[in-house]
């Protein structure tokens, strides 16, 4: 055996088991999910192949469209708000020396919490008087209470808030790392030219942070598209109510699969989710390549 053959053999012996694992636990199930999407199957009986029927039913299902638009609403509110907040905080936090570690820790700790636990905390906060502390606080200063989770318009932002809150810490530390990676000479050159800090931010900092921003946009987009824990734990009986106002795609998938045993319909919706994520990733690659 030549040296390179020997090394090749060694390599295969290293990745053999992991490869089998990836095939069995990642590839096969992915293909399986696609195949189930074209069946009518209640998990107990026989699988019946029905072509694109599930997708046609989805297309005609008004609730599915509500769910889809909710999912986009989570995405379109969540990403800009969380990025803007985290950038502003990171930008200023980076300039602060006094108590920097302490402040950073305060912003970062929510990232370490369990979404389920915090969903219940926020659910408590949002209750009407005499329970919820937000409305209690507003009552003290004479402001009429909000409906929050009992409102078709306020419920979705209310459910989104803890998701943004929990992700902020991660985005802040990534932004700070990105800010610190900008070469100091750039700033010095700009200072010599007498640029204002607003100008520096626009011309130097933001362009330099492009890859950081793209990375965070993608990561947080994926996160908001897959929102589930908060909705499941904050809405009555995990239904994503009131009137489906908070129900996201993943909750719809969960309900279809594990409450109605409609595996075909659930798998068809996972295909939709997959497609959405694929589109986002492709867009990311495009932007990064430029």
């Amino acid at each position: 055996m030549t040296v390179s053959q020997k090394r090749s053999l060694c390599a295969w012996s290293f990745i053999g088991v992991p490869l089998i694992y990836f095939i069995l636990i990642r590839f096969y199930p992915s293909l399986d999910a696609f195949s189930i999407a074209f069946t009518d199957w209640d998990i107990v009986g026989e699988k019946k192949y029905i072509g694109f029927d599930n997708f046609i039913v989805l297309w005609d299902d008004p609730i599915f469209w509500i769910v889809l638009s909710n999912t986009f609403e989570y995405l379109l509110l969540g990403v800009p708000i969380s990025l803007l907040l985290s950038f502003v905080i990171a930008y200023f936090l980076d300039q602060v020396r006094f108590g920097h570690g302490f402040l950073r820790a305060c912003y970062f700790i929510p990232f370490l919490t369990t979404a389920v636990a915090m969903a219940w905390v926020w659910r408590w906060f949002y209750q009407p008087v005499p329970v919820g502390i937000i409305n209690l606080g507003l009552g003290k200063i004479g402001i009429l209470q909000f409906d929050f989770l009992r409102s078709t318009t306020e419920a979705l932002p209310a459910v989104l808030a803890p998701a943004i809150w929990a992700g902020l810490g991660f985005q802040i530390v990534i932004f700070i790392a990105g800010l610190r990676a900008v070469p100091i000479t750039y700033y010095e050159a700009a200072k010599i030219d007498g640029a204002t800090s607003w100008h520096i931010l626009r011309v130097i900092t933001l362009p330099q942070l492009r890859s950081t921003i793209v990375f965070l946009v993608v990561i947080s987009s994926i996160g908001f598209l897959r929102i589930f824990d908060q909705v499941y734990n904050m809405t009555q009986e995990g239904e994503g109510g009131p009137l489906n106002a908070t129900r996201p795609l993943v909750l719809n998938i969960y309900k279809a699969a594990f409450e109605n045993f409609d595996m075909g319909m659930a798998a068809a919706q996972t295909v939709v989710l997959f497609t959405l994520l694929l589109i986002i990733t492709i867009i990311q690659l495009r932007i990064l390549r430029k």
Partner: peptide
């Protein structure tokens, strides 16, 4: 191949996993 698994969301896999 392994990199491509990053593209597949857990939500898509849970149904086949459950059956397995």
């Amino acid at each position: 191949a392994i990199l491509s698994t990053l593209m597949i969301p857990t939500e898509m896999l849970v149904i086949p996993w459950y059956i397995i």
